[in-house]
Write a protein that binds this DNA or RNA. Structure first.
Lengths: 337, 337
DNA sequence: CTGAAAGCGCTTACAG
DNA sequence: CTGAAAGCGCTTACAG
């Protein structure tokens, strides 16, 4: 065993009290006389005492830690979310344990199985992949008993009793696509994840709804199911153009795809927005610095993180958190559309 | 206290052995007869037993956790690094505790002070900001005594006995700038962090070295010290152009800045690369999908993460790790240069 | 090879 | 308001 740090015993001895009293002033729950509290606090400061988190964890059954399972931290929307969630948790005195899912369902399941033994207070899941709802639902009771909170970011799991914070992606896509239908000279294409993506299917539903609203049929030939990354956007559009497909506008499922799509169009001499208008999705910070600036549906990761933090606080305080929080996206119109 | 999970006691009872034996097969260190080992393993599987990490942590003085202090996770090079480090640690059975520094030295110092109480095995620091070397150096002995490994990513702290994995940024910048000097029709400008940035000063040193090598003087008026983000690149270049500065090429300290710089030039009608060649830094995944494709000095976060993991393994095994690992960047030539 | 026992550093009923 | 004591779930000398 290691050279030990200062412990409650050191503080107690120095302050002339019992370790129980030290612990009481530390926790702030039980009542301690003002003078002894001050004395203990002074000693704690002098010795630079920090309570051993592992001992606290063993005793309390959990540590000041939250597990964050994130779909793909290389995507800007997720790294922004991670940054703000970490900051929000830090304000609550919670540390963030990061798990990058990378589209691996097995990783998520492993985390769910480890959570209790790990002693995390909560699990936050932010993924666009369709989650294993059956497995999640089956564990909700276990987590509740173990006092582990679980929060879904981006997709609606409130039906399983899991508090969810999400965007109105269908409404956002509907607005953007309506704009494209109205202003583009040609049919509107769609590229993005659809099958297997909870988020993606909502966005695509907005694309469909906008067409219904306009009283026109969308062309299934102009709908391409592809991953959210740059290359997927590039390849889908390049291939469609090679196949002779014609479209005057494109709604992309992510800003990354929009950027790839723009590159593909420019590479064959089609101009954006003159020949084809494009809207991305997610409000990546770089979208306004691309040329043409990429129109997009914005995110607000800071507010979203605040909602998640509020849910965790409510759960911690034993009050009922909102089961379903829906945020709006703003259509940021830029040169590309 | 919570509804408890299965413990060593449950396993021991079920397998008809003592908890000591259960623990021995778990750890795999002491010798256990093959038959009892098999029996215990079987019961562990049946009960789905997971050792309580907090109890292990208290007993062993540390948990299977590594703290990762990262400069700014919103920058692509850092999110890529985070992804690969998490994956590499996962393979070693280690969880990653994420701290986004966001250029706050106080946050790093707080982490250093908490590390022992937190029970982390190691601290990995990846930042481009000049680190508080005095404070770090002053804690090296304490960390060594506490058995906490510390690794520096991106900047050289080997002089303080801290194993460091870094790129030859000076050499990389020198090569790129030499290319720009040779091919651009006009002086080469530089935009990036210089003061206060360990990484940045190396890159700038490469810019200077390339000029020396070419036997020409660089123009201090064409050197702009600015943050690594899109907007800083945009603003620095826009302002320089407004001030009537003329340059035929620009070396940027990051791909983000390069993208911002390209936007600023295009917005005033200057063409890239015809009027001004540009090279970024970092090899962001999106750089090749920007138009023009952004030439850059690549990173290899996966290899870097592997080096870090190897250092942690060596330290864990009690063998001496390489104190200083220098990786090369590749000049990815693209349309922008 | 195996078990009984001590102890890691806390927190919280229980008494006073 | 305060202290003595039990116990959270492990691991590892110590004995055998």
């Amino acid at each position: 065993l290691e050279a030990s740090l200062t412990t409650v015993f050191d503080v107690a001895k120095e302050a002339g009290v019992s370790i129980a009293t030290v612990s009481r002033v530390l926790r702030g729950t039980a009542s301690v006389s003002e003078t002894t509290k001050l004395r203990v606090l002074k000693v704690i400061g002098e010795l630079g005492y920090q309570p051993n988190r592992m001992a606290q964890g063993l005793r309390l059954g959990r540590t000041e830690t939250v597990a964050f399972a994130v779909g793909d931290i290389e995507q800007s929307v997720y790294s922004a979310m991670t940054k703000h969630l970490q900051a929000a948790l830090e304000r609550l005195g919670l540390d963030l344990l990061l798990y990058n899912l990378g589209h691996s369902e097995a990783r998520l399941l492993k985390l769910l199985d480890n959570a209790a033994a790990l002693g995390v207070q909560a699990i936050a899941i932010a993924s666009s992949d369709a989650l294993p709802e059956r497995e999640l639902a089956g564990r909700v009771d276990m987590f509740a008993r173990a006092g582990i909170a679980i929060v879904s970011i981006n997709q609606d799991l409130s039906g399983h009793g899991i508090p969810s914070v999400l965007y109105d992606d269908k409404g956002a896509a509907r607005r953007a696509v309506s704009h494209l239908i109205a202003t583009a000279c040609g049919p509107v294409a769609y590229v993005g994840r659809i099958a297997g993506s909870a988020v993606g299917s909502n966005r695509f539903a907005g694309y469909v709804a906008a067409h219904e609203e306009a009283g026109i049929a969308f062309d299934p030939e102009l709908v391409w199911d592809a991953a959210y990354r740059y290359r997927a956007g590039y390849d889908a559009v390049a291939q469609a153009c090679r196949a002779g497909k014609r479209f005057g506008a494109l709604q992309a499922g992510s800003d990354e795809m929009a950027m790839g799509a723009i590159a593909a169009l420019q590479d064959i001499g089609r101009r954006v927005p003159e020949d084809c208008k494009i809207v991305g999705f997610g409000g990546a910070d770089w979208a306004e610095f691309s040329r043409p600036g990429i129109a997009t549906l914005t995110s607000n990761p800071e507010t979203m993180a605040a909602h998640v933090a509020a849910i965790l606080e409510a759960l911690h305080a034993g009050t009922a958190p909102p089961l379903r929080t829906v945020m709006e996206r703003r259509f940021a119109r830029r040169a590309s559309a």
